[in-house]
Simulated scan of single mutants.
Amino acid sequence: MEVIEVKDQDLASTLSNNSKVVIKYYADWCGSCRLFNPKYKRLAKDERFQDVTFLNINAEHNPEARSKAGVSNLPSFAIVENGEFKETIFTSKEEAVVELLNKLN
Rank of each mutant, 00 (worst) to 15 (best):
N18L: 02
D51A: 14
I89V: 04
K103P: 00
S13V: 15
N56F: 09
A44Y: 06
C30V: 00
V21F: 08
F54M: 05
I89K: 11
V22S: 12
A65P: 08
L35M: 14
G31P: 04
E64A: 09
W29R: 02
V97Q: 03
K41I: 09
C30Y: 05
E99N: 12
D10Y: 01
R42K: 13
P63N: 04
K93A: 14
R34P: 01
A27G: 14
N102Y: 08
E94H: 00
V98R: 14
S13E: 15
L74T: 14
K39Y: 09
V98H: 12
N37G: 02
A27C: 12
N73D: 03
T53S: 08
E64S: 12
S32L: 08
R48K: 15
S19E: 07
L74Y: 15
F49Y: 15
D51S: 15
S67H: 06
L55N: 04
D8N: 10
T88S: 07
K41R: 15
Y40Q: 13
E60M: 01
E87G: 12
A65K: 13
R66L: 06
E60R: 11
N62M: 12
R48H: 06
V98G: 12
I79N: 13
S13L: 12
V6N: 04
A69L: 05
N18M: 09
K7M: 02
G70Y: 14
E95T: 07
P75L: 03
L74C: 14
V3F: 03
L101S: 06
K93V: 03
N37I: 04
V3I: 05
S19K: 06
A65T: 12
F77I: 04
V21I: 00
E95P: 11
D46P: 01
I23Y: 04
R66Q: 02
N102G: 13
R48C: 05
Y40H: 13
F85Q: 10
N62I: 10
R34L: 01
K24E: 03
E95H: 00
Y25W: 03
F90D: 13
N17A: 09
Q9D: 14
Q50V: 08
Y40G: 11
K20D: 11
A12W: 05
D28Y: 08
K24P: 03
R66T: 00
K20E: 01
A69R: 04
S13C: 02
A65H: 10
G70E: 14
L104W: 09
F77T: 15
F90E: 13
